[in-house]
Computed example of a mutant assay.
Amino acid sequence: MSNEKDFQYVSDLRTVVTRLIKKLRRESITAQQLSLTERSTLGLLLQHGGLLPSELASMEKITNQSMSQILSHLLEEGLILRTNSETDKRKVVISLTVKGEQTILKMRSERDEWLEKAINATCTAEEQEILKQAIAPLTKIVDFE
């Protein structure tokens, strides 16, 4: 077991990562128009293409009923399409519309632009190098189950 002093950096890291995530969410005007789960659902569809509503619900770790409400809103906004499955006509496949794809890419672009501006304005070249080197270990932490 580590001592309390060694453990402090863990708490500091959690705090700063949480604050950065909240800040990034606020820096996208486009993202503010959708809930976190709606944005995440669009991201999954961009990554995986067409998915069944039950697959999306499972990936988001929410009920099928909650996913149904999210999909209804995204459909209303013109961000997704519902098409009958080619293999099983009883099933519906959800995919992004062109507007949906443009929306998710615009959100990412807005956040990337803000983050690049913030890094350039606040970090030295050496600090920017440290951030680049931190990506690999942070990715390992994110992928840890």
Rank of each mutant, 00 (worst) to 15 (best):
L81Y: 11
L51E: 05
L131V: 00
K140M: 07
F7K: 11
T87M: 11
K23V: 09
L44H: 09
S85D: 12
Q33H: 06
A121S: 15
D88T: 13
T18H: 13
I80V: 15
S35G: 13
T30A: 05
S95E: 08
L42W: 01
L138K: 00
Q65P: 01
E27S: 11
M67Q: 10
I62M: 01
K61R: 15
E116L: 05
Q32V: 05
S11R: 11
A31V: 02
A118F: 03
V16T: 08
A31G: 10
W114G: 10
S28W: 07
L105R: 07
R19F: 08
A134G: 05
G43P: 01
K5N: 14
T63R: 01
C123F: 14
M107P: 01
L42Q: 01
L79V: 03
L20N: 06
S2H: 10
K99Y: 07
S109P: 02
T87N: 13
S28R: 03
E38A: 07
N120I: 10
E4T: 06
Q69H: 04
A125V: 05
L81A: 06
S40C: 12
D88C: 09
Q8Y: 13
K23Y: 09
S28Y: 05
L51D: 02
L42T: 03
V16H: 07
K5D: 15
L24M: 13
R90M: 12
L52D: 08
T63L: 03
M59K: 08
S54N: 09
A57N: 08
M107Y: 02
L51N: 08
E86I: 10
Q47K: 12
W114S: 05
R19Y: 12
L36D: 13
V16F: 06
T139R: 14
M59W: 07
V16N: 13
T18M: 03
L52A: 15
S95D: 09
I130K: 15
T15C: 13
M67I: 00
I80M: 14
Q33L: 05
I104H: 00
K91M: 15
